[in-house]
Design a protein around this nucleic acid. Structure first.
Lengths: 231, 231
DNA sequence: GAGTACATCTCGATG
DNA sequence: CATCGAGGTGTACTC
């Protein structure tokens, strides 16, 4: 990894064009040839970048470039597409390289998959007498998060989200439409379950006869821990 | 901006929990208190991070931490939420600080807005005899990208995407449903226009009587340039 | 490799 | 403030 602080201007050409006027920025060159251009604020997204795999070619400035104050030009070329990032460097204020090695990677807990596992284990959260048919029930248009049976033996399709948005209701609607064509399953009703359900999504779901269920991940994890302690 | 290369482990707790085992990484501390943890590969997304505004508190290790080899612990606390990032530093291999100033920001060209402008100017791309009613036609549930009239005087709603996905078809379907309730406009038919249309999106659109149109941005830009040269 | 859905999505516009 | 839609989305997973 190479870290350069420089006064520079940056141009990107590829899926779109983008230009960064002259200013002082961090240029981060990774081992795979990718380059990130960061300012001293904003979120984790760089101002501009080149995704790996890419190759960095550095050439000394000459002619009119020198007259404009450019000392060096970087061309970062994507190996797979014809995307290009061109960095004109006017002054280098810092330059250091470091060996980092391969990263073991991130371990996550609390994503949708965890929520799904917990809800499947605690299926009666949906209502008394509910039983799990299966998680990730496969259909032609994608997997239904949870398929269950209610106390009356009716089939219930559950769409699970961390944040319940209109998109999720649309997704569940498509699944329900398909599932209800299957005479062995029909009638199938829907439950839209999320940690937080947006008002518009709730209105749309209710309008389509889909039940909404707000989930408390911490409480469900608490039950899970309590269960684990019993065995 | 502060750049630190360190052997460290990182833990995030907030909307979810995430853990990074001990390894050598870049820690980037921005002026607004945000912190990015980068490895020497992958894309522009950090392994872990804290969004601004945030405050960084550094404390020297003590007791059992020292026994484990930790020399310093960073606590990055979000100012707005209770999200926290904890970095245990085992060894600092580099540490430098730099004044960058405020960045003038990015200038873009070629995003959906440009595509929309071009299609509005070249409305006969939709078919001979088409005329533009207006761009960004406002409805209660959001703006329709382009509203046009076909050769027979029928109203046509166009949903425009760079990448045509199922979401876009759903969006257009909602607009069509609403527009067709307006007796002054009905019947309104739909056109789903994108640089690339995914097969499933095409199937769904066709199933709903929505026409699909694949756009060639470069060709349209070429026409635009040619037009410009004429006047 | 293509397609699909999730994301601590981020980011901007808009009401 | 929330909502909605775009993104050079990235990323993981399935087929």
């Amino acid at each position: 990894m190479r870290l350069v602080i420089a006064r520079c201007s940056v141009d990107y050409e590829g899926r779109l064009k983008a230009h960064l006027p002259l200013a002082t920025r961090l240029l981060l060159v990774k081992a795979d040839g990718s380059v990130l251009v960061h300012s001293d604020g904003g979120s984790y997204k760089p101002l501009n970048w080149m995704s790996p795999p890419a190759t960095l070619r550095v050439i000394a400035a000459e002619g009119t470039q020198l007259d404009e104050g450019i000392v060096e030009q970087w061309t970062v070329q994507s190996a797979k597409t014809d995307d290009r990032l061109i960095v004109n460097i006017y002054e280098q204020l810092h330059d250091s390289s470091h060996e980092l090695g391969i990263d073991p990677g991130l371990i996550k807990d609390g994503v949708e998959a965890d929520l799904q596992r917990l809800l499947a284990e605690q299926i009666e959260t949906l209502g008394p007498g509910f039983t799990l048919i299966r998680r990730e029930y496969a259909t032609a248009i994608g997997p239904v998060d949870i398929l269950a049976r209610d106390a009356n033996g009716g089939t219930v399709a559950v769409e699970l989200k961390r944040r319940g948005d209109i998109d999720g209701v649309e997704q569940l609607t498509r699944y329900l439409e398909l599932l209800n064509r299957d005479p062995l399953l029909a009638p199938v009703r829907g439950v839209f379950a999320a940690q937080q359900i947006k008002p518009q999504a709730r209105v749309l779901a209710t309008d389509r006869g889909i039940d909404c269920l707000t989930l408390d991940y911490d409480a469900m994890r608490g039950v899970d821990d309590a269960d684990s302690r019993l065995f």
